[in-house]
Amino acid sequence: MLSQDSNLMLEINDLHASIEDKEILTGVNLEVRSGEIHAVMGRNGSGKSTLSKVIAGHPAYVVTSGTVKFNGENLLEMEPEERARIGIFLGFQYPVEIPGVSNLEFLRVATNSRRKELGKEELDTFEFEELVKERLSVVQMNPAFLDRSVNEGFSGGEKKRNEILQMALLEPSISILDETDSGLDIDALRIVASGVNQLSTRTTATILITHYQRLLNEITPDFVHVMAEGAIVKTGGQELAIELENRGYEWIEENIKKINL
């Protein structure tokens, strides 16, 4: 999917971030261009999820230094909802359940806020229902889920599908999918992966945050990054993921030690 006219979308420079005075990101550098798919891998606690939350603007994290730019704009100054509206999408590892808030209503308000940004017409309840029904097919989701409260009582797989449905509705420029594969059986994984593949175009970019190589069998990344102790320590192509699968993370850590020595 790489092409000559791809432009720089996301630019992360020496990003440091902490939560409750504890530094989690220790200098992340990353560039993502349109049309690219990046995979970020690493052990639990290496800072992968934190990176995704910092990009999306989670208020619990404090950026202590570094920059994050999106299409040249300073992302760090924006509220989470502004980031979403200009096309940044975070697929949560653990989507929260929000009892009482109707899923359909939530999807409609969210979709309209993005459409407004894109200069598209806002949709009323009926128009929106049409759109949702069409997009449901991307994730093969049962329309009954629309009548329930946001994520309430959804199984792990249903929650992840609901995330991809939101991605399909919001049509983001860049999607960061945090462990979207965790807790899914192979069929659900394929459905989710095919959803992501359908939604990827030359003008969008995707960052997959994952533990395992198996998602990468379904979605082929252009770049694979390995995170350790809050920074990206190695970057390569698809073959890096395979090597990691075979040799484990120790292998990377050994390498880092050698370099440091």
Binding site: A56, G57, H58, P59, E79, P80, E81, R83, A84, R85, F89, L90, F92, P95, V96, I98, P99, G100, V101, S102, E105, F106, V109, A110, S113, R114, E117, S149, V150, Q166, L170
Partner: peptide, 24 residues
């Protein structure tokens, strides 16, 4: 945060959540 990360502003997110809380 979940609602805001979908582009809903904090005031609207606040009232959506409250409404949901009551509606239950």
């Amino acid at each position: 945060f979940y609602l805001r990360s979908r582009g809903i502003n904090s005031k609207q997110a606040y009232s959506l959540l409250l409404e949901g809380y009551y509606k239950e």
